[in-house]
């Protein structure tokens, strides 16, 4: 049964992706991309990757789509005729695809429990992480402890993106400097009422995801994106000016490095206690407790950075849209 769902989802993915090649209307392209991301997320669920599905849904279908929409709001929604040599592209694609297909014939078959992937490193995570780390969600254990340095790198990547976007588009100024023009969907009474009801719920959900990530799917990254989404919704329905009044871009800019530093400081405390960087065992008398403290703090660091960076990037893009509208 799951195989059938799998096949249908895969077929839909291919159709969606294939359609994107030929559509020249960028709005449709972006919408189809959002659908593509959601399909990916659904597929990840059927493949047991709930954490990944969660992230893909909030990032691919959420943040990426919003950013793309704000971009085409400025750049226009039509792609003009392409003049590129399609034979060249086809040649490259066929060559690369051929190499990949050649590689697949030797690949371990789908879903067998004795594939090499499941044998060498992974069993330790599955068997001993619940006792070593003390968390039921193995993904969180691996993410935050065994491969905590990767996650530190990931947080830094997000921070690097913020540096890039801020330096390219600028951090938005203070609210008083903003254009007086009242934006937002003032006409949409229903939308505003519903947004008012749901925004607190979304923030509450973000906090749940943040602190419940040790036990179920979720964690700092997803929570940060969801919390940012609540403020983005606020900005969209009640005007950017009001949102900027609640969380100012300057604050966001200074919050982003704080999360990275929080993460790093956990590692530095481990170092001071004589252990290696990011070794949480030494954070408390009992190693399992230490792991737990460490993971909660670093997840908080991730959450803070992701929240502030996503919101900051949105402000930067929305500021550009506003500027374009005035001109």
């Amino acid at each position: 049964m799951t195989v059938l769902i799998d096949l249908i989802l895969l077929a839909m993915l291919v159709i969606t992706a294939f359609r994107i090649i030929y559509i020249k209307d960028l709005f449709s392209v972006v919408m189809l991309f959002g659908i593509y991301s959601f399909l990916c997320a659904a597929l990840f669920v059927t493949l047991d990757a709930v954490d990944v599905a969660f992230t893909e849904a909030s990032v691919g279908a959420g943040i990426s789509t919003v950013l793309m929409l704000s971009t085409i709001a400025i750049t226009g929604r039509k792609e003009k005729l392409s003049l590129h040599s399609h034979t060249f592209a086809t040649l490259i694609v066929l060559l690369t695809g051929g190499a990949l297909i050649y590689g697949t014939f030797d690949m371990p078959l789908f879903g067998l429990a004795d594939n090499p992937v499941h044998e060498h490193v992974a069993p330790r995570y599955i068997e001993t992480s619940p006792t070593e780390i003390g968390l039921p969600n193995m993904v969180t254990s691996v993410l935050a402890s065994y491969r905590g340095f990767d996650t530190f790198g990931e947080t830094v990547v997000v921070f690097a993106a913020a540096i890039g976007v801020f330096s390219l588009l600028g951090v938005r100024g203070k609210p008083t400097e903003l254009l007086a023009q009242e934006q937002g969907l003032t006409q949409h009474k229903v939308l505003r009422v519903v947004a008012k009801i749901s925004i607190p719920l979304i923030i509450l959900f973000a906090l749940y995801v943040q602190f419940h990530g040790d036990f179920g799917p979720g964690g700092g990254f997803q929570a940060g994106v969801i919390a940012a989404a609540a403020f983005i919704l606020y900005a969209l329905t009640f005007s950017l000016r009001k949102a900027v009044g609640v969380v100012s871009p300057r604050f966001v800019k200074y919050l982003a490095p704080v999360g990275v530093l929080l993460y790093a400081s956990v590692g530095l405390v481990s170092m001071l206690n004589g252990a290696n960087f990011l070794d949480y065992n030494v954070l408390a008398a009992d190693p399992v407790d230490g792991q737990h403290y460490g993971i909660i703090i670093i997840e908080l660091g991730v959450g803070i950075t992701v929240f502030s960076v996503m919101l900051g990037i949105f402000y930067a893009f929305a500021g550009q849209v506003e500027k374009a509208n005035v001109q």
Partner: peptide, 16 residues
């Protein structure tokens, strides 16, 4: 949540 957002979405769309 679906009951809250679904109709609101369609409403906003139609109104826009």
């Amino acid at each position: 949540f679906l009951l809250l957002t679904g109709p609101t979405g369609s409403h906003a769309l139609a109104k826009s």
